[in-house]
Amino acid sequence: MDKKLNILAFDENLEKDHILVYYKGPFIDTVLASIGNRINEIEMNPLLNKKVFSIFLELAQNVSYYSEEREHHDQKSKSYGRGSFLIYDWASHYSLTSANLIKKSWATIITEKCKKINSLDVDALRQWKRELRNQPMHEGQLGANIGLIDMALKAGSPLEVDITPFDEDYDFFALSINVSKTINNNNI
């Protein structure tokens, strides 16, 4: 009985908090595809829909590649990061958040990168993105290393970083970004 009541309270809280999508678990390709399909049903404006979808996928790939909490799938001989993903639906904007564990040594690196991104204007961001994309790939590199910049450009709003100590070795890292429902032609 207690359990049922908790689920009801949990559901009501999700709604009260304007949470449209909530997922916690391994960031497996099939799960990401389902969340992606759901996102595509939410927003009718094609550009806004595409912005939300692209940002979701970059956030999700970061969790899948880089989360320190990992789940192995023997069938695919591949491992997937575990973490959480949320979309809030507010009257003026969507807010997307991903969260996962990172090594403590990464906390400063990520915080500094996001700070730098937030300090740059569109032209400087585009230039930096081009510079990074032109750098040769190093062995074991999973992505193009431009996901965070791409998100900031598409959202036209700052990256919000929240890092909380988890234990001796790891921090809990949450990354949020807002996407305005009013699309501005200058993009920022």
Binding site: K50, F53, S54, R133, N134, M137, A144, I146, G147, D150
Partner: peptide, 12 residues
């Protein structure tokens, strides 16, 4: 009409 950032590198 859509590519993720990993694909963007290969397109380049």
């Amino acid at each position: 009409s859509y590519f993720n950032t990993s694909s963007s590198r290969s397109i380049l």
